[in-house]
């Protein structure tokens, strides 16, 4: 958190220049990327993985993926941060799912515990986007929790909560529009 306040003193890359320098495999570009985005990506990861050790491990993995897959980044499809955010989210969910799967073989039958694991983690509720999600009404919150933070498909959620797929889809869309207005600066 501390260093974010001094970031403006640093050599400033435009996003396009940064991507070019990263593709040229420049260490200084990677250092800049880490110094500028590690905190933000860490908050995304920590929002999904409450265990700090695990989150730290995934953060490293995420940066290695970003570094090694930068060639695949296409700026026509979105901003660099959005691309990195999705890598961070997917990697975190993979880790979460692996762990869940190891702990309980039943997977989809776990409605209650999954639901509770989402809402009863006190630390997670205070981190990043998840903090904002918790401002939503419960019926919306659960859908964002399960889909965005735990990676379940809408079909899976429909079965878990025993709510029709169409309703899940409509409610999730509404939840996301509300989320947008909450984080809009």
């Amino acid at each position: 958190m501390h260093y974010l306040t001094v970031v403006p003193d640093q050599k400033k890359y435009s996003e396009a220049d940064l991507v070019v320098a990263l593709k040229a495999r420049h260490q200084s570009a990677f250092a800049y990327l880490y110094d500028n985005y590690a905190g933000a990506l860490n908050s995304v990861i920590s929002g999904i993985l409450p265990n700090q050790e695990e989150a730290t491990d995934v953060l490293q993995e995420v940066f290695v993926k970003i570094w090694r897959q930068i060639e695949k980044y296409d700026d026509a499809k979105g901003r660099l941060f959005t691309w990195m955010l999705n890598i961070a989210r997917n990697t975190s969910i993979d880790r979460l799912r692996n762990k869940d799967y190891q702990h309980n073989q039943q997977n989809l039958e776990l409605t209650e515990s999954v639901y509770e694991s989402g809402v009863t983690q006190p630390n997670i509720d205070k981190i990043g986007l998840r903090k904002v999600v918790h401002l939503l009404k419960d019926e919306y919150k659960i859908l964002v929790e399960l889909s965005y933070f735990e990676g379940y498909t809408q079909d899976e959620i429909s079965k878990m909560l025993n709510i029709p797929l169409g309703t899940i889809k409509t409610r999730l869309r509404t939840a996301l529009v509300q989320l947008r207005s909450l984080i809009k600066p």
């Binding site: 880490y34 590690a38 905190g39 908050s43 730290t56 290695v64 901003r79 955010l85 990043g128 984080i183």
Partner: peptide, 26 residues
């Protein structure tokens, strides 16, 4: 995309000190 990015930046959580070094080593 921008508001999501800003939200994440504003809520950044500093990683542990050793991470950067390990990453650069790797």
């Amino acid at each position: 995309e921008l508001s999501l990015e800003k939200q994440a930046m504003d809520n950044a959580v500093s990683p542990l000190a050793g991470v950067r070094e390990k990453l650069f080593d790797r």
